[in-house]
Every structure is written in C-alpha cells, then in structure tokens.
C-alpha cells in the first residue's frame, strides 16, 4: 500500500463493541459532542479521530447488529483498547458480549486493554439520573432539562413517564449488577490467557455510565486514553525503528486467525 502515508496517522485505536441498542453511538456522541440526541442504528462502523494531547486516537464505533458481525474482527485489528458495552437494564446484552463479541477481539493487540461498560445507568441509578454534565454545550442544557423526565423506554414501557419528582428510573429493573460485570471481566482475562494479578484490576476497568446524562462518560474515555498512552509511546518507538510499520501492520498475520475464530 504505497498510498497509506500522508494521512494524519492515528497513534492508537479504540473500538466500541456491544449489542445493538446498548448506546455505543450515544456514548461516543456524548463524549465528543456533549449531547444526547436521537440516533439511528449504526451501519457497518464509523471511524472518528480524536485529538488527545499530542496524540491522535482513532475510535471505531461499530454496529451491534448481527448483520455486520463479520466485520467486527476487521474493526478490532490492532486495537489498543476495546470498550465492551452492555445495557444495565438488559441481561441479554451482557450475555451477547461473551457469546458474540469477545471472540472478535482476537485480532486486537496482544496488550490490548478491555473495559466493560454498563450503559443507561440513568434508568436504574438515581445518581446517574440526576447527574449534570458540567460541560454541556449551553444551548443543549435546556434540551437536556426537558428531556430528563422522559425516560427513553417508550417502546419497552408505553405507560406515561413518571413525574420528575418520583424517579422515573426506578421504573426499570436493573438486570445486570456491577458484580456480574466484574465476573465477566475476570472471564475476559481468562479467555485472553492473562494473569489477573499482572492485569488491570476489574474495579478500574468496569464502568457504569449514562450517555443520556453524561454520568461517568468522560471518566470512562479519559481513563482509557490515559491507559493506552504506554501503547502509543511503544508504537512511536517501534515506528522510529522501522518507519514502514503502520496501522495495517498486523493484517497479514492476524487474517487467518480472525477467520477461524469467528465461527
């Protein structure tokens, strides 16, 4: 590929994985645009470049639909961090991570870090629901205020939303407890053949977030970006040693593995 050169080359790759509708696009949108707005189900994958200090971080927001399953390993190729996202009100979404998405990460870097993120915490957790995103764009603040009393559960629960006083979030049953996520994190490490002691601890890598209110969203992304810094530095060093290496570097090698493992 002689052409791949001039592009402001991303230093590191972060991938969002998870079942459709768990809120991957919303999380990224909240983080980059400081807004929560109506989304449509992602088609394929969407690529974003995020400036983080002097570094370029590329973020892949992937589609959770089965239709695009086969592309997952391509998006994960060479990833430094994978955000495995589920919906705290939907047990199946956590199960899907294990059944369908974990194997896609086989193409990620060997030192890839994994975050387990339970989104839509506003539906079950008063703290998350009442959280105010301090960085909200001014014109968005009001929009948010209006939105808050109406939980985004209309299709699941067509009853009128609770009044702002009584927390509408309590209407929905929390299906996934933080312990479940921690246990899953342990299984990820085992799947990867990683030693629990030398890996990042579960408490650091399991999050509950709300793309709707912004709860924990910055925390999540910023923690991850900080954690991938070593990966960036290592990569820069490698690049100095062999200037031809780029994002596509491990394509050939991992291709076969990806194929055989996804079925």
């Amino acid at each position: 590929m002689p052409e791949v050169s001039k592009m402001k080359k991303p230093d590191v790759k972060v991938v969002l994985l998870g079942d459709m509708n768990v809120g991957k696009t919303s999380l990224l949108h909240r983080y980059t645009e400081r807004k929560f707005k109506d989304t449509i189900s992602t088609v394929g994958g969407a690529f974003f470049l995020k400036q983080w200090g002097p570094y370029n971080i590329s973020i892949w927001d992937t589609a959770g639909r089965e239709q695009f399953h086969g592309l997952g390993s391509m998006y994960c190729r060479g990833a430094a961090a994978v955000i495995l996202t589920y919906d705290v009100t939907n047990w199946q979404s956590l199960a899907e991570l294990e059944e369908r998405f974990l194997s896609l990460t086989d193409t990620a870097n060997h030192d890839c870090i994994y975050a387990v993120v339970g989104n839509k915490a506003d539906l079950t957790d008063p703290n998350a629901q009442l959280y105010q995103d301090s960085n909200v764009a001014p014109e968005d603040q009001t929009e948010c205020e209006e939105e808050r009393p109406e939980p985004q559960v209309l299709s699941a629960c067509p009853t009128p939303p609770a009044s702002p006083a009584s927390l509408s979030g309590s209407v929905l049953h929390k299906q996934v407890a933080p312990e479940d996520a921690v246990a899953f994190y342990g299984r990820i490490l085992r799947y990867k053949g990683l030693d629990e002691k030398s890996s990042l601890p579960a408490e650091k890598m399991c999050f509950e977030t709300s793309a709707k209110t912004g709860y924990n969203v910055d925390t999540l992304f910023e923690a991850l970006f900080d954690l991938v810094l070593p990966s960036i530095l290592r990569k820069r060093n490698e690049n100095q040693e062999s200037p031809t290496v780029d994002l596509e570097e491990c394509r050939g090698a991992s291709n076969k593995r990806a194929r055989s493992s996804c079925c």
Binding site: H29, T32, E33, V43, G44, G45, A46, F47, F48, D61, A63, F68, G70, L71
Partner: peptide, 8 residues
C-alpha cells in the same frame, strides 16, 4: 454525518 463510515 459524523465520522467516516465503512460498511458492506
């Protein structure tokens, strides 16, 4: 409208 899409 956001980002660059790659899709089959």
């Amino acid at each position: 409208q956001a980002g660059e899409i790659w899709t089959p």
